[in-house]
Write a protein that binds this DNA or RNA. Structure first.
Lengths: 190, 190
DNA sequence: GTCTATAATTGGATAGAC
DNA sequence: GTCTATCCAATTATAGAC
């Protein structure tokens, strides 16, 4: 792995662990095992390096979303697959976590990967729910966009509960609760 | 308002705005309008002051929860009242936000108010849901503890979506989606 | 009790050698 | 391209005057 790559990977890990405000260039250089000069050769500074790391996180998160949403199964099964995908509940979301970082939210360049990625998840899930309504698999009478936002929020909020409790249990409960609620949307559950 | 009180209120605001890592004693002193000495007279340091601020947040959040959960209305109405309570979606939760702050989570004293408050919300909502099942207002066949976690997670996750988008819309959608899903639990909705 | 002065450490970035 | 040396500001805390 070349120097630029090591810097991006070290930044990805530290952003996940400590957030943007809590991550210093010094930490990044120590973890990447390179000197000051390399970082300022490849990037203009901390924000530029973080932008590269966040863009990679966004790309990976979208790819793993596509794998689930485009599966050749029923709509409900894909919703459950999304919710129950194995996740590191105590570490949280590499993208969602950043929305609590004021310096990320305040910088349009740094915020864009968050906005685009979470927005895309909401859109894709809304399309999926609408597809289920159209095919008759899911009942009518709910707004796909709203339920989609709730589903994404359960995952993001589940991380908050897990971190506060320092236990995966509330995360697992939240996901199970969401699955139970979505089950009531199936037409044959009426 | 005396000096000690001004320090706590300034800290509460800054923690809400910028988190623990992002808040410096200097910022606190400037906002409170007091000198260095006052802070170190009333508190042992930043962590001690933050602990006082977080305890106050926890007390207030529990009190506002009690007001909703103990209302003299139906179970479903209280669930909806909790979800649709007016909130500053772009600012987030004074307690939940802290769970993304590594220095808070790592310190047992600072983490306790988070754990206790969010744990209490999950418990009270679970009791409420069980009460609804017992009275026949809500259908059987779901686990109250799980749905309760999902409901709290929708709110906490809704904040994440709103901040990432810098718009209250995804928060409002998530809450509306959760309300729609909970409506399917009513026995008379079958 | 509250203030100002000061100090040790870290944060973030630049300069220049190789 | 990568390194070390250096720099200025901010962070967190202490000391001591009043």
């Amino acid at each position: 792995m070349d120097t630029r790559e090591r810097l991006i990977e070290a930044t990805r890990d530290l952003l996940w662990d400590r957030g943007y405000v809590g991550t210093s260039p010094r930490d990044i250089l120590a973890r990447a095992g390179v000197g000051q000069g390399s970082m300022y050769h490849h990037f203009t500074g901390k924000a530029d390096l973080a932008a590269a790391a966040l863009q990679r996180n966004a790309d990976q998160m979208r790819a793993s979303g596509e794998a689930v949403f485009d599966a050749e199964t029923g709509v409900y099964d894909r919703l459950v697959a999304y919710l129950t995908r194995p996740r590191q509940a105590l570490k949280g979301c590499r993208i969602g976590r950043m929305s609590e970082d004021p310096d990320i939210v305040a910088d349009p360049v740094l915020r864009r990967p968050l906005d685009e990625t979470l927005g895309w998840y909401r859109e894709r899930l809304a399309e999926l729910l609408a597809e289920g309504q159209a095919s008759g698999e899911l009942r009518a009478g709910f707004v796909p966009r709203q339920v989609a936002a709730a589903v994404v929020a359960v995952v993001q909020g589940g991380y908050v509960l897990a971190k506060a409790a320092q236990s995966t249990e509330p995360y697992d409960d939240a996901v199970a609760g969401a699955v139970a609620l979505l089950a009531t949307l199936r037409e044959d559950a009426r």
